[in-house]
Design a protein around this nucleic acid. Structure first.
Length: 338
DNA sequence: GCCTTATGCTCAC
DNA sequence: TGAGCCTAAGGCT
């Protein structure tokens, strides 16, 4: 369930564990990874990460493309493979490994993958295999197809190789030309790659921005500040498998690390008081995803606040209510009576 | 056990 | 713009 920070972390770990080695690449028991045989037994050259996409380069024009989507996740282990389960999609395993089995579901890590920072079950050098579950995509690309994907993606705040993906100017230009709200533009992977629903909500709050501001009404200085802020925020993103966006001084507890419930300013805090001003956090659907914001600190208008979901009703009921026409309202009222 | 929700994306209309 | 797909966890009955 990653945003760009976690995808880059997997790339770093899998490079350390698997790059330069021959791998067994196996489909799960549900036959949904029909390309496995194309890369099985081949040597992995390098793992690439751009935005939320992973590319396992096996040479010979073969890139295993993995996109975790909302639900995808890896499990890592050492030694013999565990019993396969139904939802499993793919396994990457060092050819010829055979240590005692240890496994752990995606664990807390920082992007740096420090070996001895206390957050690792074991260092990536000791990882013999990984299992993949629930990805949106797991298929083999040609180099041309991989490159076409890269060309389509906007700059990535976590890009570490000089080139297009580390140059934000393209993103700034696209935003300043658009009439769409900034909250929608920040989620658009063709504009900026790697930002997801948590970071967009939290970045907008950290810069006290009205999420409904049209891109063309933004100013370049603010866009540069958001970009600059996003880099350390994404890098430091994972603490105990949580994305933490609050500054220590802003947390009610003033504690470090952030206690549960104090990781985010607005994300999934609807109905709760803003840490800074006490106003209730609002939420609504925007382009198919839930947007969270503080009406006071983010200077939204009364009309904009009126579009927020009613408290105490389900997301589904609110989505139905937002649909035009009497039928939608009827469905919504039926749901709300539950 | 059912319902809801979730860090995402693609395709058809 | 809406439907569909992917999986797991938590809250509720």
């Amino acid at each position: 369930m990653p945003e760009g920070n976690e995808v880059h972390r997997w790339a770093a770990r899998h490079n350390a564990a698997f790059a330069g080695r021959r791998l067994n690449v196996l489909p799960g028991p549900n036959h949904r990874f029909s390309d496995a045989h194309l890369v099985d037994g081949k040597k992995l050259r390098e793992v690439h990460a751009v935005g939320k996409h992973l590319g396992y380069e096996f040479g010979d024009d073969l890139y295993l493309h993995i996109h975790l989507g909302r639900f995808g996740d890896f499990t890592e282990g050492c030694g013999p493979l565990p019993e396969p389960k139904g939802a499993l999609r793919a396994i990457l395993q060092r050819a010829g490994s055979g240590k005692p089995a240890r496994s752990v579901k995606g664990q807390p890590h920082n992007l740096t993958c420090a070996k001895d920072d206390g957050t690792q079950p074991f260092p990536p050098e000791d990882v013999d295999w990984c299992e993949l579950r629930g990805p949106t995509d797991c298929s083999v690309y040609s180099k041309e197809k991989w490159q076409a994907l890269l060309d389509r993606l906007g700059p990535d705040p976590l890009a570490h190789e000089p080139g297009d993906h580390d140059n934000p100017q393209r993103a700034f230009d696209a935003i300043l030309k658009s009439k769409k709200p900034i909250a929608e533009l920040l989620m658009d992977q063709q504009i900026i790659s790697g930002i997801g629903n948590i970071y967009r909500a939290e970045l907008l709050f950290r810069h006290r921005l009205n999420p409904f501001t049209p891109g063309e009404a933004m100013d370049l200085k603010t866009l540069k500040a958001i970009w600059k802020d996003s880099i350390p925020l994404l890098k430091a993103g994972m603490v105990d498998r949580r994305i933490v966006c609050t500054k220590r001084a802003d947390r009610p507890s003033k504690q470090e690390p952030a206690p549960r419930g104090e990781e985010h300013y607005v994300y999934r805090r609807h109905g709760k008081p803003c840490f800074l001003c006490g106003e209730k956090i609002l939420r609504r659907d925007l382009a198919g995803r839930t947007l969270y914001w503080c009406p006071n600190d983010q200077h939204t208008t009364a009309a904009e606040n009126k579009t927020a979901y009613a408290h105490g009703t389900s997301l589904r009921a609110n989505r139905e209510a937002a649909k035009p026409g009497a039928a939608g309202r009827k469905r919504a009222s039926a749901l709300m009576e539950d």
